[in-house]
Design a protein around this nucleic acid. Structure first.
Length: 108
DNA sequence: CAATTGACGCCCA
DNA sequence: TTGGGCGCCAATT
């Protein structure tokens, strides 16, 4: 059984796991608290290769614009992300963005 | 081994 | 106030 040492990503998963419903965090923010500032792309990749067994609130991670990061490789799961957020009470602006001032979670 | 990619973010014109 | 361009760096080609 392949057990790759993804301790770096484990920290990312751990942080995302504590984001409460109705709150969100940005990729850069998670990266910063994971000990890898300026490396938001690692957070993105960590979610890209996220094992399905790991049930973490991945949908509560968005980009700095307060929007969903759309990507072709996601094959429509980005649409699901928006639905999940709206289900938690997150409201999207006419510009398809949310107000980070209100919804951004502070890890402390 | 070198080049490209990417669920991103910041800087500057 | 916006938009275009560059940097970050593991993983993939």
């Amino acid at each position: 059984m392949i057990m790759k040492n993804n301790s770096l990503y484990q920290k990312i998963y751990d942080l995302i796991e504590v984001i409460p419903p109705g709150k969100v965090a940005t990729y850069g923010q998670v990266a910063r608290y994971a000990g890898m500032p300026r490396d938001a792309r690692r957070v993105a990749y960590a979610l890209h290769v996220l094992p399905e067994g790991k049930r973490i609130p991945w949908h509560r991670v968005i980009n700095r614009e307060g929007k969903i990061s759309y990507a072709i490789s996601r094959n429509g799961s980005d649409n699901l992300q928006r639905a999940l957020l709206e289900e938690e009470g997150v409201v999207f602006n006419p510009h398809d963005a949310i107000d980070l001032q209100c919804y951004q979670y502070n890890f402390e």
